[in-house]
Amino acid sequence: MNAVPPAFTPAEPTVEPVASAAKPFLDELFETGVLIPSGVDGLYGRSGAFEEVIDRFETLVERHAREDGAVKIHFPPAMPRVNMEKSGYLKSFPQLAGSVHSFMGNDMDHCRLLSAIAEGTDWSQFQQPTDLVLTPAACYPLYPTVAAKGPVPADGLLFDLKSYCFRHEPSKEPTRMQFFRMRENVRIGTAEQVSDFRERWLERGPKLIRSLELPCALDVANDPFFGRGGKLMARNQRDQQLKFELLIPVNSVENPTACLSFNYHQDHFGTLWGMEREDGEKAHSACVGFGLERIALALFRQHGSDVEAWPKSVRKVLWG
């Protein structure tokens, strides 16, 4: 019972985190001040050290992105509602989507709103949908932007994106946040160009994570599509090996956490948004996504809450 929490056991590069911690990992993170509770599951403040780890990790990704000639764009964490409607996100993930509502009434409506709050009744009826929804994945705002610019050049396009994303899935697992950051590199072009891009990251991703002395494994994966029909979509996605994830043990060894994902969209977004190549064919796309909070949590889980005490070799990779 008084044993040192396994999360803080100094780890050899090949050692995996112990399966069951003395207490839930989320409680550890609150106690050590790495995360700050808000009162709502999945919504947390981040410590300076946590943010610094994310910053340092991002410089590693950015180095590759620059070498590849990626164009860097950061979108805000909201996007036009019409674009979510058109994207098909609500067909596949209605349970995860978040939309922005605001008060648009008069003085009398304002009184009713305040009365409802005072009485503890539903006040959301006094709010109306705005033109905004919360961004569900960093690449969603990109496709309409690319489509509006005209044909995709013969060499294809490459972007380095980052955004806070929202998914409504409150959880006690610190790795399942409602607001989190996703860094994404997106390739748009021919089937061959985007497949090459994904292959390259399928090699690079595990190398990058292993350089941080984190155990990891690649696996075929599927998105959490909604409902019974979603099961069919998930199987389709798996059968075609459209999605791979790089899994790292964070909450437990038995259920490692997807920290990177490697997705081939075929011509799904090309067709949806009318992204065409110069030869008139629909553009294909692929992306690699980095769950930045998840990667930071994996590092804190493996190497402990005090970044100064992390293995020198890991610190060297991150801080140089």
Partner: peptide
């Protein structure tokens, strides 16, 4: 036939 179309067909 897209993946989502196959779901519509199923339903």
């Amino acid at each position: 036939m897209t993946s989502f179309a196959s779901v519509q067909l199923m339903l």
